[in-house]
């Protein structure tokens, strides 16, 4: 197996991983702070992509469109939180799962009504075309490299906000003791709405960046949502550090599994058996990983210290 191919797939894995992280960060924050299971997070990912497509077409400028689309997703997230989710915080997880499941059905159909069921094309601008030279003889798509860069930058910014600013302090305090921070005079409901909006915008950003790589279509949020669940379960629910580690692990394992499991199995099994088992095993790999992690460490790799 040529080394450059391995390296390229490794980078693809990291690229997928940072996208998963953008989703997982919002989801794990919402769960850690508000104790809310939000299945509709995948819908926000989808809405982010669609709103950005619309905004790019409307404004004619890629960056302005992206900014506008993300801002719209942030507002949409806050709207959803105020209208539907706010009453769910005190309910059990069962009600939360069902209500947000209803939201998914709604958003998928809404998108189908507004934009149709066929996949849309979110073209990357000219300046993001082309390749970069990693080292002599190895080229990597510029766009994917930019995705990795943006993802890492967001991760760093998030780390800074959560650990070094007043807002982050409130968020962490809210995660460890809700009623205490409310008693100290912090408007916790507003904080919740705001955090939810940020989570939505991060999911939207992931959706925007996924646009040119995967397809923008109704239901695009569900596949990635379940992978994101795997990520936060592996990482430990409520922990951003865990979400980051989990996202990179899942991204790399999934990508490498899809790329190399079939040829690897081919060296052990007959080619026909490898053909059959390879793809099946590759798509099951992250779920097996999750089952193994849960069996050994039921709280995930980085359990949140502030959990209730």
């Amino acid at each position: 197996m040529p080394l450059t191919l391995v390296l390229e797939q490794l980078l693809n894995g990291v690229q997928f991983g940072v996208m998963l992280f953008l989703m997982a960060a919002g989801l794990t924050l919402v769960f850690g702070i508000m104790n809310l299971v939000n299945l509709a997070h995948g819908s926000l990912y989808m809405m982010g992509a669609y709103l950005t497509v619309a905004a790019v077409q409307w404004s004619g400028n890629y960056l302005a469109g992206v900014a506008l689309g993300l801002f719209a997703t942030l507002l949409l997230g806050m709207l959803v939180e105020v209208v539907a989710l706010r009453t769910l915080y005190d309910r059990d997880h069962l009600d939360q799962v069902l209500a947000t499941f209803g939201l998914i059905l709604f958003f998928n159909e809404l998108v189908a009504i507004l934009w149709g069921r066929t996949a849309l094309d979110l073209a990357r601008p000219d300046w993001l075309q082309g390749h970069i030279e990693l080292f002599a003889g190895s080229r990597y798509p510029l766009y994917r490299a930019v995705v990795i860069g943006v993802g890492l930058a967001v991760a760093a910014a998030l780390w800074y906000v959560v650990t070094r600013t007043r807002l982050g302090m409130l968020v962490r305090a809210g995660a460890s003791n809700r009623s205490m921070i409310a008693a100290l005079g912090v408007n916790i409901r507003l904080l919740y709405t705001f955090v939810f909006g940020i989570g939505a915008a991060l999911a939207g950003l992931a959706g925007v960046m996924a646009g040119p790589i995967y397809a923008v279509q109704p239901g695009m949020g569900e596949l990635i949502l379940i992978q994101v669940f795997v990520v936060i379960v592996i990482g430990g629910i409520g922990s951003i550090r865990g979400a980051f580690a989990g996202a990179l692990i899942v991204g790399v394992v999934d990508t490498l599994g899809r790329a190399f499991l079939k040829p690897l199995l081919g060296t052990v099994l007959s080619p026909a058996a490898a053909d059959a088992a390879g793809p099946a095993l590759a798509s099951m790999l992250i779920y097996l990983l999750m089952a193994a992690v849960l069996a050994l460490r039921p709280e995930g790799l980085f359990p949140s210290r502030g959990g209730q």
Binding site: I226, I237, S283, M284, L294
Partner: peptide, 26 residues
């Protein structure tokens, strides 16, 4: 062995596993 939200997600994940198994057996 798990409970709460972990139970919800792990049962979901196992079912996804079987779903992909179904998809990939031509």
């Amino acid at each position: 062995r798990t409970s709460g939200i972990y139970f919800i997600m792990i049962t979901l994940a196992f079912t996804q596993m079987l779903y992909y198994l179904g998809i990939s057996i031509e």
